[in-house]
């Protein structure tokens, strides 16, 4: 009868897609340095959630994942996001919601990557808007699981009710994101760019050699 069917089923779907993404990453992924970079960003983003645990949904993780994707691209962005969820839950408690969070934050990173690739002049503004939007979307994705696992019956009404119950948290999340992005965004993006520069090598031509 109970929601464990749906809970488990959805969990399997999400986990399976995560596994597929990781497998894909395992085959294509780049050098040790890229891996080290992703690992660190993920650990950093994940850990940054811990000191804020007392205030639900206020945390810099979403923002950090977003700018990681923005600077390093969609693939690394996804990995950073999903790993960050994994890491932070080592402290805040793992549970069946972990895969959902991994997926949601992964998508945050992915969207950052897309925004980063699509260069236009209102980058700052669009980052602010995107970070606000993700505050809401993130909650909605997670609520699906909540709804499936802990709520009975599974009707549209109860679904909307669940979404509405979290609206305050989502708004806090969204405005937190905007806050972090506004005050720390530029600085941290600068740091990330510096490390991106360290990933790019150019070679000197013979003439340049002569001149130097």
């Amino acid at each position: 009868m109970l929601s464990t069917h749906w809970s488990l089923f959805s969990l399997v779907i999400v986990s399976a897609s995560l596994v597929i993404i990781y497998l894909w990453y395992d085959r294509k992924a780049g050098s040790t340095k890229e891996i080290a970079l992703i690992a660190t960003l993920a650990a950093f983003a994940g850990l940054s959630r811990v000191p804020f645990a007392a205030i639900p949904s206020l945390q810099p993780t979403t923002f950090l994942v977003l700018i990681s994707g923005y600077v390093f691209g969609a693939g690394p962005g996804f990995m950073v996001g999903s790993l960050a969820a994994f890491v932070s839950n080592l402290f805040l408690g793992h549970g069946p919601w972990t895969p959902w969070q991994m997926m949601a934050w992964g998508l945050v990173g992915l969207s950052g990557g897309i925004l980063g690739r699509w260069k236009w002049k209102y980058a700052n503004l669009s980052l602010l808007i995107l970070s606000f939007m993700w505050g809401l979307f993130f909650g909605w994705i997670l609520n699906i699981w909540h709804w499936l696992t802990f709520v009975y019956p599974l009707t549209l009404k109860s679904f909307i009710a669940v979404q509405l119950t979290s609206i305050w948290f989502d708004l806090i999340h969204a405005s937190g994101n905007v806050f972090f992005m506004y005050f720390l965004g530029a600085d941290l993006i600068k740091i990330l760019h510096r490390f991106k520069r360290r990933l790019t090598v150019s070679s000197l031509s013979v003439q340049e050699l002569e001149r130097s």
């Binding site: 990453y25 992924a29 040790t32 891996i35 080290a36 992703i38 690992a39 660190t40 993920a42 650990a43 950093f44 994940g46 850990l47 990995m79 790993l83 994994f86 890491v87 080592l90």
Partner: peptide, 10 residues
């Protein structure tokens, strides 16, 4: 490696 490095970084 990715997962191990991440948890090691903590």
């Amino acid at each position: 490696l990715l997962v191990a490095l991440t948890t090691k970084t903590i």
